[in-house]
């Protein structure tokens, strides 16, 4: 019984994190802030939900599979965020008006592109 309660709590917590991340997708002002906010909340939410599912099934093969999924997500999600934001800098997506851009401008001067 305690096992089911733990798994249900983990799943609810993960779902709430996912909801927060997609509210942030709507509310935050800028592509870069949205990207960095949504990546973290999604990674934590998905791994909590998958851990809850694994505890509910409580089978060793399912656990191996779930650890594989969690490992992929931890490896892949920061990589995807980094690649997309690099593409956004290259294609000149606009920054928020309060952003301090001194270092990027200095780099543009060094490497005329």
């Amino acid at each position: 019984m305690i096992k089911e309660i733990i798994s249900a709590l983990l799943i609810l917590l993960g779902a709430i994190f996912m909801l927060i991340s997609s509210i942030g997708m709507i509310r935050l002002p800028d592509f870069y802030i949205r990207n960095s906010a949504s990546t973290k909340a999604v990674v934590l939410g998905v791994s909590l939900i998958l851990l809850g599912v694994g505890i509910h099934y409580d089978d060793i093969l399912i656990f191996i599979e779930i650890f594989a999924i969690i490992f992929f997500i931890y490896l892949i999600s920061p990589l995807a965020a980094h690649i997309v934001s690099r593409a956004a800098v290259i294609t000149k997506v606009e920054f928020w008006k309060k952003t301090n851009l001194d270092d990027l401008d200095r780099r543009k001067e060094e490497l005329p592109d």
Partner: peptide, 10 residues
């Protein structure tokens, strides 16, 4: 209320 002050840091 937002207390974000973003910047790009090298």
């Amino acid at each position: 209320k937002d207390h974000m002050r973003p910047a790009i840091v090298a």
